[in-house]
Nucleic acid binder design. Structure first.
Length: 482
RNA sequence: GGCGGCAUAGCCAAGUGGUAAGGCAGAGGACUGCAAAUCCUUUAUCCCCCGGUUCGAAUCCGGGUGCCGCCUCCA
């Protein structure tokens, strides 16, 4: 079973064969920490989180690096606005990043390098390029000379002459070639600066990723990921400067996630049409967002809307109902017994293999999720109505559930107890548990007296308050509806 | 202007040559005092349009239409 991945370099699916057997070295471009993250960032990070989880699930030893760009113009501007300094800004937003993404259940990378903590490596890399005549200094700035790199444009499929002719390329008199880009920027008075052979300054954007990825993963590594918008110029430039410096191939597989759109338009800071992760997580559970993101392929554009979240919530609820049943089986003292068999159980038994086939095909989470739904339908058929009275059935159900649990884990779903999902705090101002339980008791008494009109009145009252009552053999349980 | 991507049911979304997964929403049935959940059945004669290749195409080729992205900071 081989994983195939869509490699932006070459624009086609290829068998994934890492450099060292059983080991994957992977670098993902993180964020520039000058503001809160939005759903677009969530998309990218969840996509690569699932990729890392799946690679590990299949047995790879993955070294996962994701950087923070903690010095750049936008950070300096934000610092000026806030009357603080770059370090205060980057520290603040790194903390916000971790707060938000820990809630989303992202695995922490093995290393989260920061540009400002790799100045010596960056300077050494630039100095090497200057020494080889592949970069040049002008008044304290250092530029990379694109002319000296014949492969320029190979990742993005761009033609160097077209780029030069393009009206949108910024013409800077100090550059030898409009395509050249800054490796080192001389500092203006009052700006933070680091010493270098070209005077005080700070690194350009692209060079940090080259320096940090090569430091932590070696000159050639397996996977380099990021958003589609980074293909050009960011990743193109990384390739140019890295390969010019080492003479070796840089990253072997380039993976890029598609955008999140709002009303069919890219969500971005510059367009101002973004929703922060924080705002979204105030409305829905983190796993709802994960489910929404996993519902489509990571390279496809997805349209974000309230309706899409509502649908995701409904789908996730269906999955959590299964976990809820498994918990009830365990609570009744059952243990996983024999794995279910028979034709009815076929979609369940084949789920791990089918899930794997889908994920092997360029991490097709949408298809994988489809197979999981097939499996849970089969599993639901096996569910005991009252676990404590049907111990054997409960054991079989649990055994079936345990086939699926690791697969949900790959997608980062069903990580919380069902009670937390259905009854946990989330939306403010909801009816409290005490009041709900009192209502349930009043309704129980009414039902016992066959006063059904009163029982239904109580049900409707709670329903209007966003609480759903469910009558089971073991009594009445409740859930928040959203 | 250059380069690239996408168009599948009411909505979301898989499927890249063998006759349309899955989810949400809807309809009918079983179950329920009534519900909810769950299960069963059902919902695209057809995959933007027009040609072509093929025994056979949503899938390949040519043309067209529409939408989007990159070429500037951007996940």
């Amino acid at each position: 079973m081989t994983i195939s991945v869509f490699n932006t370099m070459g624009s086609r699916k290829e068998p994934f064969v890492p450099l060292s057997t059983g080991k994957v070295r992977m670098y993902v471009c993180g964020v520039t920490v000058y503001d809160l993250c939005h759903i677009g960032h969530a998309r990218a990070n969840v996509a690569f989180d699932i990729i890392v989880r799946y690679l590990r699930h299949t047995g790879y030893d993955v070294t996962y690096i994701r950087n923070f760009t903690d010095i750049d113009d936008k950070i300096l501007r934000r610092a000026a606005e806030e009357g603080s300094d770059y370090l205060a800004v980057s520290t603040k937003y790194i903390r916000a990043f971790h707060d938000d993404f820990d809630r989303l259940g992202l695995l922490r990378p093995d290393v989260e390098p920061k540009a400002t903590e790799h100045i010596p490596e960056i300077v050494a890399l630039i100095a090497h390029l200057v020494g080889e005549g592949k970069a040049y200094e002008v008044g304290g700035d250092v530029y990379y000379s694109v002319k000296g790199f014949p492969g320029y444009g190979k990742l993005s499929g761009k033609n160097v002459e077209d780029l030069r002719a393009g009206a949108r390329v910024d013409v800077d008199e100090r550059k030898n070639d409009p395509l050249d880009f800054a490796l080192w920027k001389a500092s203006k008075p009052g700006e933070p600066a680091w010493e270098s052979p070209w005077g005080p300054g700070r690194p350009g954007w692209h060079i940090e990723c080259s320096a940090m990825s090569m430091k932590h993963l070696g000159e050639t590594f397996d996977i380099h990921g990021g958003g589609k918008d980074l293909v050009f110029p960011h990743h193109e430039n990384e390739i140019a400067q890295s390969e010019a410096a080492t003479g070796k191939p840089f990253a072997r597989y380039w993976l890029h996630n598609g955008f999140v759109n709002v009303n069919n338009e890219k969500m971005s800071k510059s367009l101002g049409n973004f929703f922060t992760l924080r705002d979204v997580l105030a409305q829905v559970k983190p796993e709802v967002l994960r489910f929404f993101l996993a519902s489509s392929h990571y390279r496809s554009p997805i349209d974000y809307s309230d309706q899409s979240l509502t649908e995701a919530r409904a789908g996730l609820d269906r999955l959590y109902r299964v976990r809820e049943k498994a918990e009830a089986c365990r609570a009744a003292g059952a243990a996983p017994s024999q794995i279910p068999s028979g034709e009815d159980a076929a979609p369940l038994l084949s789920a791990p293999a089918r899930f794997g086939e889908a994920m092997d095909d360029d991490f097709n989470t949408a298809a994988a999720l489809g197979h999981l739904f097939d499996a849970i339908r089969a599993l639901n058929r096996l569910a005991p109505a009252e676990p404590s009275l049907e111990r054997e059935r409960a054991g079989i159900f649990l055994a079936g559930y345990e086939l699926l649990d690791p697969l949900f884990g790959v997608l980062g779903l069903l990580r919380a107890p069902s009670a937390e999902h259905f009854q946990g705090a989330g939306v403010a101002g909801r009816m409290g548990e005490g009041e709900i339980l009192a209502g349930i008791e009043a309704r129980r008494a009414a039902r016992a007296a066959k006063q059904y009109a009163e029982a239904d009145r109580i049900r409707k009252e709670l329903d209007a308050a966003g609480v759903l009552l469910e009558d089971g053999k073991g009594g009445t349980t409740w859930k928040y509806k959203e």
